[in-house]
Design a protein around this nucleic acid. Structure first.
Lengths: 290, 290
DNA sequence: TATCCCTGATACCCCTGGGGTATGAGTCCG
DNA sequence: CGGACTCATACCCCAGGGGTATCAGGGATA
């Protein structure tokens, strides 16, 4: 009876993102009429109205919102089929590990070294990604395993192993009075009038309201701290990327940050299993001061 | 450059399951030549050989095995798009809860009653499934939430909440000497010569080797116990489906069985959240004897 | 060894349906 | 009221998905 095609999912997602048939068609390298028709066809087949086309543009219905989320997941899964199949056929197997740039430096290095020393070790490629981008890379097959951080990253739909738990430090401008304190509390850092917490874009690209500066990359953030405009609280081990103009101060009562190795649920590669085992082994010795 | 179509995934999965182009084409309601061609096309596009066609039939290459697993997941995800979108548009929202037939009777009833008593409760449809079938129903959108049992069910890729932990009992034929014992140990039940553990089919339909009878449903198993051919160890609360010819005996050192409420990772329905909350509330009182 | 059968691949044809262009229809704005 | 904008409709074309007929190679069996 039904059965959506990948092509139809791509069309719908593009239209839902653009909320404009003309622009969506352009992004899809096709003309607008067949795109309109294809969407209508999907709506007829599902028996569901996905888009409200009334005066002043196009908008998603409630069902359309659901379909957008589900369709993105499905497209990721389809993408993963091709990518993982190709990888499986590649002459020399390899693992792709992804992590946020600048985080868990020492741990990553130690893990790579320890794993490489194992007899059957395969090559491990490191793929740096945007903050919060690891899960998607795992879902669509671009990466096999990720280093993530609780409670910051969402790990739904992934298997995982905890590697390390550690305290957090505040990164403050060296010139600021707080920089001279031996330690701080969450209450002290969360409400500093002249150092408001930076705001990151939401999934739809808009920013939450608030006094802090808008940022979308770590380097921006680092620069803003150096300029004395904001501060941030990060896990102890992430302090590697601090500048000379930064000072890190332990925050006693910050929630513990956990470094986690995560991989797609049900992954069955032997190389991955060995890497995870190495990490768990490693984590027994490790334990950075709180 | 690439981009597999749903149709191509369906074709490949069918061929990979049948390992026979003719039969696969029949199942797909099409002729064999276009199917052969479609698979070749996929292989060319991916640049990967998926099937070995040599003397005496067709077999999967290593890459083909990977593709089979991934393609099934992707097809489930695509199926879920249509199903969840339709459900989202349905006039009255509802939750579909799935569980193994016969397991967690009382708990299920208590959960449904407690949830139904809440102000905003929606209708909860119960979908009974084969053993181990819950995860798939969640993935392809046929169900919203499942009652599962650790350590028996695989919960990869799902979010979950523990509801109840309980001891296990051995279900033995009433006529057997073990039935008169007040309690048993794992060592005693795991190696009874005249009551060998039953064997369940693997995913590929074959059975693991061993002395026990082959079964593929709970009713078969119940009958075999009644006939004095096998025994089984199940959570205390699952004893509901025992027959008059069965006797349940506590097994002291059996691993604790945990009843778990699981749902697709990242599900965002308010009704589901309420059900989970109800279950967690419920679980505070509950605590069946070990 | 010759023959048959079984199975997948190839050759070739047909026609569905996905995509294009032209244009209509409704809405907002100056 | 006319123009600009945007999505829908009308209509055409052809790529490609699917069909039939047939080939090719490897076992079995006599």
């Amino acid at each position: 009876m039904d059965g959506l095609e990948t092509r139809e999912l791509r069309y719908f997602v593009t239209v839902a993102e653009e909320l404009h048939f003309g622009r969506a068609a352009e992004r899809l390298n096709m003309a607008q009429p067949p795109l309109s028709r294809a969407i209508q066809q999907v709506e007829r087949r599902l028996g569901v109205v996905l888009l409200d086309r009334d005066r002043r543009g196009v908008s998603l219905t409630a069902a359309g919102e659901v379909m957008l989320v589900e369709a993105r997941l499905a497209l990721d899964a389809v993408e993963a089929v091709a990518r993982r199949t190709r990888r499986a056929a590649a002459a020399q197997p390899a693992l792709v590990l992804t992590t946020k740039a600048g985080a868990s430096h020492e741990l990553l290095k130690a893990l790579l070294d320890a794993y490489a020393a194992r007899p059957g070790a395969v090559e491990v490629e490191v793929l740096l990604c945007e903050i919060g981008g690891q899960a998607r890379l795992l879902r669509n097959g671009r990466a096999d395993v990720a280093i993530m951080h609780a409670p910051f990253d969402v790990m739904t739909g992934l298997d995982s192993a905890q590697i390390m738990t550690e305290g957090q430090v505040a990164i403050v401008p060296a010139a600021h009075p707080l920089a001279r304190r031996p330690s701080l509390t969450m209450a002290e850092v969360s409400d500093v009038p002249d150092l408001p917490i930076a705001r990151w874009p939401r999934h739809d690209g808009t920013y939450p309201p608030g006094p802090g500066p808008e940022v979308h990359s770590q380097s921006q953030l680092a620069q803003l701290v150096a300029l004395g405009r904001t501060l941030l609280v990060i896990p102890y081990s992430s302090r590697a990327w601090q500048w000379p103009e930064h000072v890190s101060v332990p925050v006693h009562d910050a929630p513990l940050a956990t470094t986690i190795l995560a991989w797609p649920a049900g992954a069955r590669s032997a190389a991955l299993a060995e890497l995870v085992e190495t990490a768990e082994h490693l984590s027994q010795g490790e334990s950075l001061a709180r």
